[in-house]
C-alpha cells in the first residue's frame, strides 16, 4: 500500500471509530457505576432515528444531536428502572432493551426510509488540517469527530477527578460501603446508566447525522455490540477505549481497502477479522483486565434491606 492509501485508511478509521468510541465511553460510565448495559445496540438504533427525525423536521443538526442523546438517556432510564427499582437481571434487561430499541426505531422509522437530512458537514480545521500526515488523518472531519476527541478526556475527568465520579465508582465497587458513607448508590447508578446512555445516543446520532445523512433500517449495524466488547478491551479506561475504537475502525477500513485493491480472499473471511480480533485482543488483555478495572459489583443489583 502506498503512503497516501495508508493515510486515507487511517482517516477512514477515525471516522468509523467515532460512533463506537462514543458508545464505548458511555458503556464505561455505566459499568463503572456497576450496571452492565447490553442494550447499547438498541440505544444506538433508536437515538440514530431520534436524531434523524429531529434534524429532518427542525432543520437543526444540533437539535438532532441533542435529541439523539436524550433518546439514549430515556431508553437507558428504562433499563435503570427495571434494574435499579425492580431489581431485574441486568443481562436480560439489556438484551430486552436491544430488541425493543432496534424494533422501535424500525417501526417508527418506516415512513421516513430513504429520506435524507442536512446533518453535519465536514469542516477542515484551519492550520491543523494543513499538517502533513496528521492533518488529513485527524483534522478534516465533521464537528462530531472533534467533539469525540474531547470526550475521553471529559469522561476520564468525570470519573477520576470529581466527587461525582468518586461516588459513581463507589456505587460500582462497594455499594454497601458507599451507602454507609452516606452516598445514595441507587441514584448514582441511575445517573451513571443515563449519562452513559446520553453518550451512546451521541454515537447513534453520529451515524444518521454525520457518517451518513439518511435514514434506513439497520443503521446501527452491530456497532453497539462492538462497543460492549471494547469496554473490556479498554480495562474500563477512557484512554484505552480510544485505542480500541481506532483499532477496530482500522481493521474494518483495512479489509475494505484490501478488497478494493483486488484480492482473492473470500469476503466472509475478511469480515470475520474485526470480531476475531476482538476475541484475540480479549485473550491477551483479559488476565490484566481481571486485576485492573473491572468494577467489583458489576452486574450485581443492590438488594433492599428489610
Amino acid at each position: 500500500m502506498s503512503p497516501e492509501l495508508v493515510i486515507a485508511l487511517l482517516a477512514a478509521a477515525v471516522q468509523a471509530g467515532t460512533p463506537i468510541l462514543f458508545a464505548t465511553l458511555g458503556e464505561i460510565i455505566s459499568e463503572k457505576a456497576g450496571v452492565l448495559n447490553l442494550g447499547v445496540e438498541g440505544v444506538m438504533a433508536l437515538s440514530a432515528f431520534a436524531a434523524f427525525i429531529t434534524c429532518h423536521l427542525t432543520g437543526s443538526a444540533w437539535l438532532g444531536l441533542l435529541a439523539g442523546g436524550m433518546a439514549g438517556t430515556l431508553l437507558c432510564g428504562l433499563h435503570s428502572l427495571v434494574c435499579q427499582v425492580f431489581l431485574g437481571n441486568q443481562v436480560v434487561s439489556g438484551l430486552a432493551l436491544t430488541l425493543f430499541g432496534v424494533g422501535l426505531a424500525t417501526f417508527l422509522g418506516t415512513p421516513y426510509v430513504g429520506q435524507s437530512t442536512e446533518g453535519f458537514a465536514k469542516i477542515a480545521l484551519p492550520l491543523l488540517s494543513d499538517l502533513p500526515v496528521l492533518g488529513p488523518i485527524f483534522f478534516r472531519h465533521d464537528v462530531l469527530v472533534y467533539l469525540c476527541y474531547a470526550s475521553p478526556v471529559a469522561v476520564w475527568f468525570l470519573l477520576n477527578r470529581t466527587s461525582l465520579g468518586l461516588g459513581l465508582r463507589a456505587a460500582g465497587e462497594m455499594p454497601a460501603a458507599a451507602a454507609a458513607a452516606g452516598l445514595k448508590p441507587q441514584r448514582l447508578r441511575a445517573f451513571g446508566v443515563m449519562a452513559g446512555g446520553f453518550l451512546c445516543g451521541l454515537g447513534g446520532a453520529y451515524l444518521s447525522l454525520a457518517h451518513t445523512h439518511l435514514w434506513t433500517t439497520g443503521l446501527s449495524g452491530g456497532r453497539g455490540w462492538v462497543a460492549v466488547a471494547l469496554v473490556i478491551f479498554a480495562f474500563w479506561r477512557p484512554g484505552r477505549a480510544v485505542i480500541g475504537a481506532f483499532l477496530f475502525g482500522s481493521v474494518m477500513a483495512f479489509q475494505l481497502r484490501l478488497q478494493a485493491t483486488g484480492t482473492n480472499v473470500p469476503s466472509s473471511l475478511l469480515l470475520m477479522l474485526p470480531y476475531a480480533l476482538t476475541v484475540i485482543v480479549l485473550v491477551f488483555s483479559a488476565a490484566r483486565a481481571r486485576r485492573s478495572g473491572a468494577p467489583a459489583a458489576l452486574g450485581v443489583n443492590i438488594e433492599p434491606e428489610d
Binding site: 428504562l78 436480560v92 434487561s93 430486552a96 424494533g103
Partner: peptide, 24 residues
C-alpha cells in the same frame, strides 16, 4: 411493520423482569 414482533418481545421481557420483583 414486521418490527412489531421484536418490540413486543422486548416489552414482554422488560415487564416480566420488573414483575418478578414482586415474586421475591
Amino acid at each position: 411493520p414486521a418490527a412489531i414482533g421484536p418490540i413486543m418481545e422486548g416489552l414482554i421481557l422488560l415487564c416480566v423482569l420488573a414483575g418478578q420483583f414482586f415474586l421475591t
